[in-house]
Amino acid sequence: MLATGLGLGADSLRIEVVEWVFWHFRAEVFPMDKSMNAILIHNDDNVVTTTELLQAGSVARYQKDEVVVEIVSREEIPKFHKIAVADIEKTKPVYKYGQLIGEALENISKGSHVHDHNIASPKEKS
């Protein structure tokens, strides 16, 4: 909308696409349902962010589209940290915001804590 206002012509489409990717989570995620305790920012993500401390064996509950997804945490996950919602093989990408945030340093099982002990910047490793 802004792009059109500025008369950027062909560029505006590109900007709109980025806007969608970027702000997708705003409309979809917030305001979030109070019964949820984790947030999936983008559907391509293989991690979600917890909104409370999860003990090992407790359930992380997040919304994907209209569906509530539950995963059991394999270990304690601190508040606002990440939990894997899929198995991530060693060297494979980790996605948050629909974007690459790092690569797995080891095989990470679904339900595990994902942090600097098991992921790193892609550049750091090269």
Partner: peptide, 9 residues
Amino acid sequence: EGGLSTIEE
């Protein structure tokens, strides 16, 4: 400590 693992994130 606040949950951010990499500079990219």
